[in-house]
Amino acid sequence: MTGFLFDDTAFSAGANETLGTDAMVLRGFALAQDAALWRAIQAVLAQAPLRRMKTPGGRLMSAEQTNCGQWGWVTDKAGYRYADRDPLTGVAWPAMPLLFRQIAQTAAEQAGYARFEPDACLINCYGPGARMALHQDKDEADLGAPIVSVSLGLTAHFLFGGLHRTDSVRKVLLVHGDVVVWGGQDRLRFHGVATPVKGEHRLCGNQRFNLTFRRAKA
């Protein structure tokens, strides 16, 4: 299977897909603004480059990451946490681009979460062979706010499990421009990302980018 089997219109824009009581996929939601999003990502990376972080146990993560916004998610031997400065440079993370905030807020509102105010955006880059194991997003002080996740680049399966690691996992194919929103009863579901389908995307090359918006602090 190659990335060319799925183009940016593999699913109809606006065809929402329910994942749970309080979770859904907004198909093609960010597609019309993909070029502007890509430029904004490059501006963030110029200030806070991608890097492979280590888990508290010393394992090197396969996806590269960076952050923008008031807070950035980091991991090292001290543990998982949010920090207001980039540990590589010692300076504040780049400001969250206005377009990022607008897309996160409008997606959240469409999914039923009004007045979402993200203060953190984790940028993940999945190159060939990279993936994200099942995990919960539980380092945020405000678990009442949803998670908004924007997919750009190569196609990949989003793994959406239950409240326990051993629960069954649903595989959801995500293409360029799709946005996933989950919160409420589904906020602490285990989730992950499988290795992207091989290919060359017109905008992102042989990579998949994921913008994950959160309310890190209450």
Rank of each mutant, 00 (worst) to 15 (best):
G129K: 05
G129L: 06
A130K: 11
A130D: 14
R131K: 15
R131H: 15
R131W: 10
M132G: 00
M132R: 02
A133P: 00
A133C: 03
A133W: 04
A133H: 10
L134T: 06
H135Q: 07
H135G: 01
Q136L: 01
Q136K: 11
Q136S: 01
D137N: 08
D137K: 04
K138H: 11
K138P: 00
K138D: 15
E140G: 09
E140W: 11
D142Q: 10
D142A: 13
D142I: 08
D142P: 05
D142T: 10
G144C: 10
G144W: 11
G144M: 08
A145L: 11
A145Q: 11
A145N: 08
P146A: 08
P146N: 08
P146V: 12
P146R: 09
I147W: 03
I147S: 02
I147D: 01
I147V: 15
V148R: 07
V148E: 05
S149V: 12
S149A: 14
S149E: 10
V150P: 03
V150T: 06
V150E: 01
S151Q: 14
S151H: 13
S151K: 11
S151W: 12
L152T: 02
L152M: 15
G153E: 13
L154A: 06
L154K: 06
L154T: 07
L154M: 14
L154G: 06
T155Q: 09
T155P: 07
A156D: 01
A156P: 00
H157M: 06
H157E: 15
H157L: 11
H157Y: 14
H157F: 12
F158Y: 14
F158G: 03
F160I: 12
F160Q: 02
F160G: 02
F160K: 05
G161H: 09
G162P: 01
G162N: 05
G162V: 06
L163M: 08
H164D: 13
H164Y: 03
H164G: 03
H164V: 05
H164C: 07
R165F: 02
T166L: 05
T166M: 03
T166Q: 14
T166V: 12
D167A: 11
D167V: 08
D167F: 03
V169L: 08
V169S: 01
V169G: 02
K171P: 00
K171C: 07
K171A: 13
L173Y: 00
L173D: 00
L174W: 11
V175Q: 12
V175T: 15
V175L: 01
H176K: 13
H176E: 04
H176M: 04
G177V: 07
G177E: 06
D178I: 09
D178R: 09
V179L: 12
V179R: 10
V180I: 15
V181H: 08
W182S: 02
W182C: 02
W182D: 01
W182P: 04
G183E: 08
G183L: 12
G183M: 14
G183I: 13
G184S: 09
Q185T: 15
Q185R: 14
Q185H: 12
D186G: 04
R187D: 04
R187Y: 05
R187T: 07
R187E: 03
R187M: 05
L188G: 03
L188F: 10
R189A: 06
R189E: 03
R189K: 15
F190Y: 15
F190L: 01
H191K: 08
G192F: 14
G192L: 11
G192M: 12
G192A: 11
G192W: 12
V193S: 04
A194N: 13
T195R: 13
T195Y: 00
P196A: 02
P196Q: 07
P196D: 06
P196L: 07
